[in-house]
Simulated scan of single mutants.
Amino acid sequence: MTALVRAAALTNFAEVAQELGYDPGAALRKAGLRAQLIRQPDQLVEADRVARLLEEAARHTGCESFGLRIAARRQLSNFGPISLLLMHQPTLRQVLLTLIEHLHLLNERLAIQVEDVGRMVVLREELTVSAAGRQSIELAIGVLYRMCGALLGEQWQPASVSFTHGPPSSQAFHRRFFKCRIEFDGAFNGLVCQAADLDVPNPGADPVLADYARKMIAALPGDRERSIEQEVRKAIYLMLPTGRATCKSVAMGLGMSMRTLQRELDARALTFKQLINEVRQDLARRYVVNARYNLGEVAAMLGYSTHSAFTRWFGTQFGCSPESWRSHSARPPDRAA
């Protein structure tokens, strides 16, 4: 099933493109999207097309911060009806959990995980889109950063932001946008903050309005059934670098037993092994060409405890060693706009 995203993902695309001397209408047509979509935020469009549009816009304009410039203009209201529900959650932690619950209504390829690590919390964020590049990822993380800031105000002081891709030629815009340490070529995409920040009470939360918002969202027309295949893929993308992407862990994360998950996949002629292998292939293509990662690090990020096991798997999937793939790849180490 084709993964969809609300056209609201392109909010402010036209303004940023025009500022950079790029014709947004022509760009949308080239991507196979109608220009009217920008005025129809709840219209669903193919997530892959949106991802390719952002990468092409950055390449054409030479602006490596294109996606982040869009994020800088985003408001909480751009989440549509879900924004009311988010505004009235008792804490930022509950906001994030509520957002995760409703991600399928916003972007079926977006995955977010809240992971407590002692006194810190890691907010992992991934896009399960083969066409996803730095623009889509930076847009998604930038929007999450802005949302947390809108809800916490001056109390929102994350420790760091992390990207698995390399740094842009100029980090000036990134440093103005993120008021924290920025790590490129990191082990994950996402944010790190104090756990205590997520549990600060939201003085504006109104449970009556939150209940009203839930009922309004439940009554929305055209709500597609959540795809178990996409939900499993998203969980694997998030869990693979931590070494916890097992069938049992994914099932628990989705709130079901391992047997139930296997039965759901069987009904769709799918296996967990098949899905984890496909995710590994996608991430391998992203990481192996990035010379900033040594191949031992790539092996660990793909869930392998030894380099030899990773090399055997890679040879079976791609017909050559990861060293050979890297040395013969014409693609630069993720420094493209």
Rank of each mutant, 00 (worst) to 15 (best):
A3Q: 12
A3Y: 05
A3M: 11
L4N: 09
R6I: 04
E19G: 11
G21C: 10
P24F: 03
A27L: 03
L33W: 02
V45A: 06
E56W: 05
I70W: 04
A71M: 04
L86P: 05
H88W: 00
L96M: 11
L97C: 12
L105H: 04
E108S: 11
A111Q: 06
V114M: 13
V114K: 11
V117D: 15
T128S: 15
G133V: 08
Q135G: 00
I137Q: 12
I141V: 15
Y145T: 12
M147W: 01
G149M: 11
G149Y: 10
Q155K: 15
W156V: 00
V161S: 09
G166D: 09
P167E: 07
H174S: 11
R175W: 02
F178W: 11
E183A: 14
A187I: 04
N189C: 07
A195F: 08
L198P: 05
V200S: 01
G204F: 08
D206V: 03
Y212F: 12
I217D: 07
L220D: 01
G222A: 13
D223W: 09
S227Q: 02
S227F: 12
I236P: 08
L240S: 09
M252V: 01
G255N: 13
M256H: 01
T260C: 02
L265S: 05
L265H: 07
A267V: 02
Y287L: 09
Y293K: 08
L295P: 13
T306S: 14
A309L: 10
T316R: 15
C320V: 06
P322F: 03
P333G: 03
A337W: 00
